Simulated assay, not measured.
Amino acid sequence: MKLHQLRALLAICESGSIQEASRILHISQPSLSRSIKDLESELGVHLLVRSNRGITLTVYGEHLLSRARLILAEVRRAKDEIETLKGRTSGHITIGVSPVTPSSQFVNCLARFSARHPKVSIQIEELRPNKLIEGLREGRLDLVLTSHGGVRQLEGFRAVELYLQPGALAVRKGHPQRHLNSLAELRELMWILPDTFEDSPVSKLFSDCGLAPPENVMVCSSLVMYLELALRTDSVSFWSMRHMTLSNLSERLDVLEVSEQVPGFVFSLISREAELLTQAANILAEDILYEFQGNPCANPL
């Protein structure tokens, strides 16, 4: 099994065709097809299926693809590490963030890091919390800033709590039930959440109050559509107070003054153990921890 074969498999799967993959990798289509055939012969299984719908992975291909992503990411990190040992802090760091707007401290930290290390390229990807963890496991992400509720159970990763963003329940301006202040009453309304109910801090709110979940819950991971639905329907929506401030949502939504304590978003920095990160990624991780806690050796969750 060779690296160029894994790169070929990854390029074909991500582009959806051999023609596009050959263009991306700058090799001929016959050479690309031969790489895949040689890999299939070595493994004794078919990895790809060609049909009128395009190219799809077999079950063997799906398992190998996740490993290929991780292997190629490790090769990239190894090259970055060698460059660092040569005295050049360079390389590439991919950071995953939740759609809830990160704090200004995090943004300022990234700006200072980029100014100090101009040869380190930074890529920021916005994904839902579960997708962030998946990207971390597959090696596509180096660092993750997320409000994912299950960070304490992530074996093999280090997770450090950074900050809390207060949360708020809101309804559109002019909502007929905007004066309700009891969770039990609000439970009867339609709800819209950016994550599944089980993954949302709202689930703990209902559980702590001894209430069953709302019966009518819509989940929308698109932030733009989430906003549109919150503004155009009679749904109860869940927001971070920072998001409300930055987007001037308080002019378009009414924050509900409920008697119960509305949960917030606890943000954590998650990564693999320090020895598995490149030096550049370690430097940025320590910068972020120091920014929020004044101590780069903060205790993990």
Rank of each mutant, 00 (worst) to 15 (best):
L64A: 03
L10A: 13
Q5D: 10
S22I: 08
G264K: 13
P194R: 04
I93P: 03
R272H: 06
R7P: 01
D234H: 12
M244V: 10
V97M: 08
L127S: 05
I192V: 14
Q19N: 07
A111R: 15
H243V: 05
A168W: 15
E42H: 12
G61T: 12
P118Y: 09
R34C: 01
A115H: 10
E138K: 15
D287M: 04
V258M: 02
D142V: 00
T196R: 13
R178F: 00
K204Y: 09
S28R: 08
Q123S: 10
F157K: 04
H148C: 02
K37R: 15
E251Y: 07
N282A: 06
D287I: 00
R77W: 02
R116M: 12
G87S: 12
L256N: 02
E185M: 07
R76S: 10
T94E: 03
A274G: 01
V219C: 03
L269C: 00
L164S: 04
K79F: 07
F238Q: 01
L10M: 13
N130A: 10
I24P: 02
R77C: 01
T101H: 15
A280P: 03
E185K: 07
L70T: 06
Q19I: 09
R158T: 14
A168M: 06
I95W: 04
K204N: 11
N299K: 14
V120H: 06
A170K: 07
K79D: 12
Q165L: 09
V255R: 14
A298P: 05
T58R: 15
K2M: 14
H26Q: 14
L25Y: 08
S90A: 13
Q261N: 09
E291S: 10
T196S: 15
E81R: 11
M1I: 14
F292P: 06
R77Q: 08
S271V: 00
V262A: 01
L132D: 00
N108C: 06
V144R: 00
P213K: 08
L277W: 02
M241L: 10
L189V: 05
K86G: 11
W239N: 04
R137M: 05
A170N: 07
I82A: 15
L47A: 05
K173N: 12
N130R: 14
V144C: 01
S121E: 13
G91I: 10
F113A: 03
C297P: 02
E40L: 07
I95M: 03
T146H: 02
L223S: 13
R140D: 00
R137V: 05
V75M: 05
T146E: 01
R128W: 00
G135K: 00
V266A: 09
V100N: 13
G150H: 12
P166S: 12
E198Q: 14
D287V: 00
P194G: 01
P129C: 00
I95K: 05
R88F: 11
E275W: 05
H243Y: 08
E251F: 09
Y60I: 02
E42G: 15
E198M: 03
A230N: 08
A281T: 10
I133Q: 01
L269G: 02
G174P: 07
H179P: 00
G91L: 04
E155G: 09
K131I: 02
P214H: 09
A212C: 06
R53N: 08
F197C: 03
E40Y: 06
M1S: 13
E125L: 15
